[in-house]
């Protein structure tokens, strides 16, 4: 009897979770397949004549294929930012963990500040403008790297502590210099953290709205999150298209989630729970 009751409670819990966390997504999906009139009713009914493909095509073609260009831009942004982030942060984490000197507390302090301090928006525009990178993809890449730097360096530095120093010493005795030691021996050993940072940062950067809004304005350079923001005012009577857009830009994080669920969770907890 007790077992039956506990099973009942669990079923109730699952139903409640599905209601609270599932319905908003179901709402997005069904409305992406309706026509404009039906979507304006804002209900949960399955579309009477589903037109998912038509809606997706209409959204993609809007404003001269803005969404497709946005996908190219967002992919380039995410890809380049991550390559730079991984390479530079691994290098920094490597030296910061291995070499403890008088400057170490200063570096610690700078990294911690980066985690806490909200970035100063207009002065950043001023700096980017000064070096000719405001409103360029390269400028936005640098911003994403600078803002992702503290967290990634912290993860690399923590992981470096688990790589035995004997490995370095053996390599040095064999005549390995710092650069060869790092690229040939250390970098491959850092692979687990690298994977974590790749997955986490790609979701963060792909979903980033605030930084593209400030640092990469203009219709030519638009990123996927900004298309959604732009279409929000354009499609005030065509919710179906808005939801088709949402559906499209949610697919990449969803795929990452299906493949790397465990890795993402590990990464999110790695930086925050002290061992």
């Amino acid at each position: 009897m007790r077992r039956v009751r506990s099973f009942g409670f669990e079923a109730l819990g699952v139903a409640f979770a599905l209601l609270v966390f599932g319905i908003p997504f179901y709402f997005m999906i069904v409305n992406a397949g309706k026509d404009a009139k039906e979507a304006s009713l804002l209900n949960l009914n399955w579309p009477t004549s589903p037109q998912f493909w038509d809606n997706i095509r209409t959204v993609a073609e809007t404003r001269d294929y803005m969404l497709l260009r946005a996908f190219v831009n967002s992919t380039a942004l995410t890809l380049f930012s991550i390559v730079v982030l991984i390479l530079f942060c691994a290098m920094a984490g490597f030296v910061l963990q291995r070499r403890k000197g008088r400057a170490s507390p200063v570096f610690e302090f700078l990294i911690l500040s980066g985690l806490i301090i909200p970035p100063a928006i207009v002065p950043t525009i001023w700096v980017l403008d000064g070096i000719g990178l405001f409103k360029t993809l390269l400028g936005l890449i640098l911003v994403e790297v600078a803002l992702g730097f503290p967290f990634s360096v912290m993860l690399y530095k923590n992981f470096m502590a688990t790589v035995p120093r004997e490995i370095d010493e053996a390599a040095i005795l064999d005549g390995c210099g710092g650069i060869r030691l790092f690229f040939r021996i250390i970098m491959p050993l850092l692979q687990p953290v690298t994977a974590t940072i790749v997955v986490l940062s790609s979701v963060t950067i792909f979903n980033d709205f605030t930084n593209p809004l400030y640092f990469l304005p203009g219709a030519d350079n638009v990123t996927v999150q900004l298309t959604l923001y732009n279409f929000q005012s354009q499609f005030v009577t065509q919710y179906n298209l808005l939801f088709a857009n949402i559906l499209l830009i949610t697919i990449p994080p969803f795929i990452l989630f299906l493949i790397f669920n465990k890795r993402i969770v590990a990464g999110m907890t790695a930086g925050s729970v002290k061992a």
Partner: peptide, 15 residues
Amino acid sequence: AGIIYLLIFLTPTIS
């Protein structure tokens, strides 16, 4: 990493 951080994060913060 230091150059990017200094240029894009620390300089704006201080200024």
